[in-house]
Design a protein around this nucleic acid. Structure first.
Length: 948
RNA sequence: GGGCCCGUGGCGGAAUUGGUAGACGCGGCGGACUUAAAAUCCGCUGAGGGCAACCUCAUCUGGGUUCGAGUCCCAGCGGGCCCACCA
């Protein structure tokens, strides 16, 4: 290996065996190929010949990328590098490590890109995946590529459809609090079980029975108001709508009633909420999920309106006596009825205006309270007095019942509305300020709340809640009620690039499932896959007439359900992009299984692992003595990915997992044990005095570190911003790999700061870690000859430093503190430079370095004469006694101020340290004429003398 | 408006349980090597003072707890993220 070194200026330079970008790139290519050939990172499954069942498992998962045409962003690899380091470390530490990678390839962006470029999404997706795979391999990640999957593979989405059918064929048994097969429900009803709502099953028409069954499915066809985005030509889940605009693209979203496939996720609200405390997840993410589920306790109360009644949900039933009017949402059925019965022009205008306004506009002038009286009264069940019913857009149809009792004295929104329309304000809770100014929303003592049957006066608001609910329940006017913000999950999309539903309809519009054996229902190849931008949802799959119009037999419907020659139409909606990512972590465990979505053996080993059911006697989650540290929920041991998925993907995946758990298909109640969010890689940008931003290439740095805009010479301020094309501060990982090598880039990204923190990319800093690798290289490689050279006898200081470094790096990897792990390795090399290391010492050092820079580590490992991969060796051990020096230097403080240092044996006890401190010349001098009141000694750390 | 997180040198950051603030890296300054430069190696690098040993100040600001506070508590200022008319 004697290549000529030519630098950027064409000048021959540097020794031929220097670790520079050229050499790094050659080393990296060579080892990537060698790993592929030797299947170094293949992970054996239970049952495989080379599987070692005695090793504990570690399932380390990355959020798989969505392959876009742009290729990997420099922020993508950050989490992947972290998970790769810990995977390599765990493997060396004796674990069977499952570390897979795949591609989330169905969904809107791929389709939008296809529409823009006119190239079929199948083609662009394959191309994008190839590019992503190439880039991922260029970083030397230790993925078991034999497990690679894409959600667009028919072999994969076959099981996505299968899981959906499982939910279609299941219902939520509220008594047991879990899902069961809907066939069991039918069988129990047939054998005389009573319906919850008291209806007589045996007396029902067959069609009514079917309707009843259908209305209990976990995956069901629901007619509801959904988020319709005309620009995207599809409906969206609540989670995909931000401030009235689509999460993707930011287009306006309208509310529209439609018949769509839904998931009954609301049945799981309590379990999704309660089980959050079992998870070793960032508190912020658990809080977001809690808020998204939005559980509130309160009461449901009926207000008589004529012969009918109006139901409201309230968290403040204790203020019922203060309800002086009611408000319904403009979309409320009562409003429709009033309009049908005439209604004022004012009402008509208001309702039309409110309904036609998109949610965006509705929020733009929030707080500004408007409304119109319906012209009817309801009866306050507590006071017996009539109160007017209004409609106003500050009440939302999507929450509670779409109607409220307004208590202006004790609710700010009601207060503002009452002031605007001169509605009466009646105080029923003591305390607070002037009700003419603001509402009194706090707790207090209830007053002016009594009728012939009940008095709440003098009770605390908490006590009053209990009393009034008892009274309402006794009178059949209301009941305790728990309400959730969480809505059922809209699962249909009017798009081409997604999983088809395994469902067909007969001529009466009844739906039938495709049998498991007929899966997958493959997505037909359409030339014209463009979404149809319209006011009415029109799925593009409808254009595949030959595919849509078929027979029950052709589609694979069980012949005992429907005769094979029955003409049927296929469902033309597709599943949303979230579907595939809900369960991919399961498929990785046995990606090639043909007859199961996961084999029982793989499920038991990779997901269940050594998880123990929390026994009934042990502390349970929620109790103070519960120790999350020792509690393993099973599933994925470590999941690394961005915080942007805190609600959507991570809530959906938990939901699917719980369905599969209930149905006995998986054996852990949660999919992810520990979750970690990596921070964002940002970039520097520059801001003018007027606040406008300047692209990075139009700015010059001055000698004093300040910055000026090149064109104008005006001073600009350096700020931190997201990478963006317009600021021209986007970094392409391919360029960095070419310029410094992948190992340097890996090291740089890990050295930027804590993995969970955002940090700005600073190209200038990369040379620091590159120089570190060069120093390691030079420590043992002769740059002129390429020969290795070691010191014959190990140096004692270097040896101690090595033990400390081995311990620190191991600890730091365990807590994902890669930046400080690298710093300690730099310190080791600084310590060994000049002194030199023995071959045996370097053998250990290269093993702790290799997880960070695998190609570099592998190269030196093999140069040292090893035949196998450094990835398959053991993590080196350290000796406790080597961690501390015999003599340590300890600070001596007087009144907390550092005054001197003493040298004492590392295990010196308090009296020895105190004596040594007081005997110190400088200390004795400073203490002259003072009285020592107290001496604080922290063995091994410091001495603090209190004297005056 | 509500919730959560965070403010440390010129810059990225370290300080794991309250115990020597600024590890490590970048940048900067000085030196060695070199005809010269690059690369490399060595030294210095929070501010102020002193010939020096050292001293004073210093972790956004102001209080507090403590022998001792970057770390804990209270108040304020600044920044980030999330939610936001949720009854």
């Amino acid at each position: 290996m004697t290549e000529q070194k030519i630098d950027a200026h064409g000048i021959q330079s540097s020794p031929s065996h220097r670790y520079d970008a050229g050499l790094a790139n050659r080393i990296e290519k060579r080892w990537q190929q060698w790993w592929d050939e030797h299947q170094t990172y293949r992970t054996p499954d239970p049952g495989d010949a080379d599987f070692d069942p005695d090793r504990p498992k570690f399932y380390c998962l990355d959020m798989f990328p969505y392959p876009s045409g742009a290729g990997l962003h420099v922020g993508h690899p950050e989490g992947y590098i972290g998970s790769d380091i810990i995977s390599r470390y765990k493997r060396m530490a004796g674990f069977n490590v499952l570390h897979p990678m795949g591609f989330d390839a169905f969904g809107l962006p791929a389709e939008q890109y296809a529409v823009q470029t006119g190239v079929h999404p199948r083609v662009t997706t394959v191309k994008a995946i190839d590019n992503y795979r190439r880039q991922l391999k260029s970083f030397g990640f230790s993925y078991d590529w034999s497990r690679e999957l894409a959600t667009t593979d028919p072999d994969y989405y076959r099981w996505t459809q299968w899981i959906w059918l499982k939910a279609y064929g299941a219902f939520f048994d509220r008594k047991l609090g879990k899902a069961r097969s809907i066939d069991q429900l039918r069988a129990e009803l047939d054998s005389g079980a009573r319906l919850v709502d008291g209806a007589d099953w045996a007396a029902m028409e067959p069609s009514a029975q079917e309707e009843y069954i259908d209305s209990h499915r976990l995956a069901y066809l629901g007619f509801q108001t959904v988020n319709w985005c005309p620009k995207l030509g599809t409906v969206l889940a609540n989670e995909e709508v931000i401030d009235g605009r689509s999460e993707r693209g930011g287009f306006p979203v309208l509310r529209k009633p439609l018949r769509q496939w839904m998931f009954r996720i609301t049945e799981y609200a309590d379990r999704l909420l309660d089980d959050l405390q079992l998870l070793d997840w960032p508190e912020s993410t658990r809080t977001m999920q809690r808020e998204w589920i939005g559980r509130s306790e309160g009461a449901s109360i009926e207000f008589p309106v004529g012969s009918d009644s109006l139901e409201v949900f309230t968290t403040r039933p204790d203020t019922l006596f203060g309800a002086t009017y009611m408000v319904v949402a403009p979309e409320h059925p009562l409003v429709d009825r009033m309009l049908a019965e005439g209604g004022s022009n004012e009402l008509r205008d208001y309702v039309m205006h409110a309904r036609n306004r998109s949610d965006v506009d509705r929020m733009a002038d929030s707080k500004e309270k408007t409304g119109v009286a319906l012209g009817i009264d309801a009866i306050n069940p507590a006071t017996g007095r009539p109160i007017p019913v209004w409609t106003a857009d500050y009440v939302l149809m999507g929450y509670g019942t779409g109607a409220i009792m307004a208590v202006p004295a004790h609710d700010e929104r009601d207060h503002a509305f009452a002031l605007a329309y001169q509605l009466p304000i009646t105080r029923v809770v003591d305390g607070g300020g002037d009700l003419g100014q603001s509402a009194c929303t706090g707790a207090g003592l209830v007053m002016a709340s009594a009728n012939e049957e009940i008095s709440l006066d003098g009770l605390t608001t908490d006590e009053a809640k209990v009393s009034i609910i008892e009274w309402l329940e006794a009178g059949g006017m209301g009941r305790r009620h728990v309400n959730y913000k969480l809505r059922d999950w809209l699962f249909s999309r009017q798009r081409y690039w997604g999983e088809p539903f395994p469902i067909v309809y007969d001529s009466n519009g009844r739906h039938y499932p495709v049998s498991d054996a007929a899966l997958p229902v493959t997505l037909p190849d359409l030339d014209d896959y463009e979404p149809i931008e319209s006011d009415e949802p029109t799925p593009p799959l409808g254009k595949a007439t030959a595919w849509v119009e078929t027979t029950a037999g052709e589609a694979g419907v069980d012949p005992t359900i429907l005769p094979p020659d029955t003409p049927v139409r296929r469902e033309t909606n597709t599943m949303p992009g979230w579907a595939g990512s809900c369960w991919y972590y399961i498929r990785y465990c046995s990606p090639h299984a043909q007859d199961r979505f996961i084999t029982p053996e793989a499920e038991k080993y990779w997901l269940l692992g050594d998880r123990e059911e929390p026994s009934s006697s042990a502390a349970v989650p929620g109790e103070e003595s519960f120790d999350l540290e020792r509690f393993k929920i099973g599933g994925v041991d470590l999941y690394i990915g961005g915080a942007e998925h805190a609600v959507l993907h991570l809530l959906y995946a938990r939901f699917w997992h719980k369905i599969l758990f209930d149905l006995g298909e998986v054996s852990t109640p949660e999919p992810i044990d520990k979750l970690f969010h990596q921070g964002m890689i940002t970039s520097f940008a520059y801001r003018r005095g007027d606040g406008s931003l300047v692209p990075i290439d139009e700015v010059e740095e001055n000698e004093d570190g300040s910055h000026t805009e090149t064109a104008t010479g005006a001073a600009v301020e350096q700020i931190i911003a997201k990478m963006s094309k317009s600021l021209r501060n986007v970094v392409n990982p391919d360029d960095v790999v070419e310029e410094y090598g992948a190992d340097t880039m890996r090291l740089y990204e890990m050295y930027m700061g804590p993995l969970e923190a955002s940090a700005p990319w600073n190209t200038r800093d990369i040379v620091g870690v590159h120089r570190f690798l060069q120093r390691v290289w030079r420590l043992v490689v002769d740059e002129e000859t390429g020969e290795l050279r070691f010191s014959a006898a190990p140096d004692d200081d270097v040896e101690r430093q090595l033990h400390r470094t081995i311990q620190k790096v191991g600890d730091d990897i365990e807590r994902l503190a890669f930046n400080t792990a690298i710093a300690s390795m730099i310190e080791f090399v600084n310590c060994a430079t000049g002194t030199g290391v023995s071959a045996e010492q370097f053998d250990r050092f290269v093993r702790i370095l290799a997880p960070f820079v695998p190609h570099f580590g592998e190269e030196l490992w093999h140069r040292m004469g090893h035949e196998d991969s450094v990835a398959c060796t053991d993590w080196p051990s350290f000796d406790e006694s080597m961690l501390v020096d015999d003599l340590i230097e300890v600070p001596v403080q007087i009144l907390g101020k550092l005054r001197s240092r003493i040298s004492v044996p590392h295990d010196a006890d308090e009296s020895v340290m105190e004596t040594a401190a007081l005997a110190d010349e400088r200390i004795a001098e400073l203490l002259e004429g003072k009285t020592v009141r107290k001496v604080v000694v922290v063995p091994g750390r410091l001495v603090n003398i209190v004297a005056n």
